[in-house]
Structures are given as structure tokens and as C-alpha cells.
Amino acid sequence: MDSIVVLDHVTKTFKNKKAVDHVSFSIKKGEVVAILGPNGAGKTTTIMMMLGLLEPTSGEVRLFTSHPKEKKIRERIGAMLQEVSVIDALKVKEIIQLFRSYYPSPMPFEELVAFTGLSKDDLKRRADKLSGGQKRRLGFALALAGNPDLIFLDEPTVGLDIASRKLFWHTIDELKAQGKTIIFTTHYLQEADDVADRIILFNHGTIIEDGTPVEIKAKLSKQSVSFVESEEISMKELKQLPHVLDVYKRKDRIFVVTDHTDEVIAALFEKKLKISGIQIEQGRLDEAFEQLTENREAM
């Protein structure tokens, strides 16, 4: 087995509130995994347990088959956490060198600087004087300082503008090409879709989906066929067509929600219904994601 992260029935309870509830999964070397979910789904708590910063109430977390708190494990991981400000009174350059000194085989200084896109002038500045975006970049440099095999990124793109976001994910692609294993949390479905090999979807402390972005999307996104009726069509009749999940009317258009648009269109023609202006909608992923997590909430 080349699973480098293993969670086995992990539960974390804070003052009788279950933040994470019997979560199990394993991650293989070289995977890029997105932990996705709405706020309060247990993403950060799970990351904190994987890092050994929180002890599970029950269950077990293993990194490289050892406890995450062990020194030899810490030498192989790097992380960017939420709500961590930079150390004060030191220059950017000094902090990076300090962090490099913690690890047995750190990433070369120049390479780190290149990865984070910090300029020569930035390096000479006091870290606490940097802008929010620059501080995030420094945080990223510190996560990579030890040239880690396993990288944790908790909401890495929060507060970044679109250009920095793009640059950031480009960097992640490069790290992936180097064979690094990367685990990141996000609540942007699009980011997870673009970058990850695998999405683990969290809600209310449990995993509700686990699969490739394509699989998850197929489950989450609902396609629909819409058209304008030339004469009245019975909604009931439409609902009885095969592969139809739902039918509704909005602004004079009828929407047929389906998991198989081709079949629906074929059926519509077969019935020789008087319709015009047929369109196929992919359905927005973000909406579907929101809907899914809300539905679970109601259950």
C-alpha cells in the first residue's frame, strides 16, 4: 500500500458538538485532493487532525504510517493554515532562511523565492509590513521550505485576487508534476474542479461524496432541456418521460431536468410536441453544490 495519509473512523467532538463524525479515507502518493464543503463542514478540523494539531476524540490519523506529531513526519510535511499571521520583526529573507534551517533537506532558497513570486525588494522588507496577498505568498514559501512530500493548504486562495489565484494554482500544478501529494480545502467548487484529481465533499462533519471531479460533477450538476411551448403541454406527461427528474416553468420556458439530455430530446421529438427554441443547459455547478449541501441539511 502506498497510502501516505490514512484516516480511520476519525471523530472530533468539541463540547458535545460533533465537528467531524466517523470520517475515513486514505490518500495515495502524488494525489491532489480537494476537501470541499460549506463553512463549518469540518474541513479545517480534519486538516488540523491530519497535522497533529488536534487529537481526534476517537479514531486514528496516520501520515506515512506514523503519528503526525513525530519529528520525522514533520520533516516531510508543510502547511499553510488559516488565521496564521507572519512572525513580526523579521525580514522576509530571514524568515525563509530560518524555516529552511528547521529541515534536513530544505528547498533551495532561490527556488522557494521563484515559487512564491516574491520580488527582491519584498525579500528585504519586514514580513509584518507586507500586504495581505504578499503575506499569503510568504506563508506558501514557508509551507514549502522543507521541500515536503506532503503539502496541506487550508483555504489557500482566500483573499487573493484573480491573477494571484491563477498563478497560485499554476504553481500547484508544478508541484504536482514533481510528485508531491497535495491536500487543500476550499469552498470554491470551481477550484476543486480545475486542480484536484479527487474531491472529498464534506458536510456536517461527514463525507458525503468522494470521487474524481468528473464523477462528482455528474452527481451534482443537473442538466436540463428547455423550450417554449407553442400549445399547452401537460407537465404531468413530461414528468413521466424516461430520465426526467423534474419539470418546471420559468418565464414562459419549460425546463425539463434530466440526467440524460439526449434521451429527453429524442422523446420530445417522438411525441411530436409543438415546441420551439430548444436549449440544453449544463446547470451551474456551484448552484448544484449549494443545493446538495442544503438538501442534506434538511434531512
Binding site: 494539531l53 519529528k71 493554515l81 496564521v84 524555516f99 528547521y102 529541515y103
Partner: peptide, 9 residues
């Protein structure tokens, strides 16, 4: 910061 230090070696 002190939490962050705990994940370094």
C-alpha cells in the same frame, strides 16, 4: 504563530 510552529520539526 505558536500553532504554526508546532507543525515544523
Amino acid at each position: 504563530w505558536s500553532v504554526f510552529m508546532r507543525i515544523t520539526p
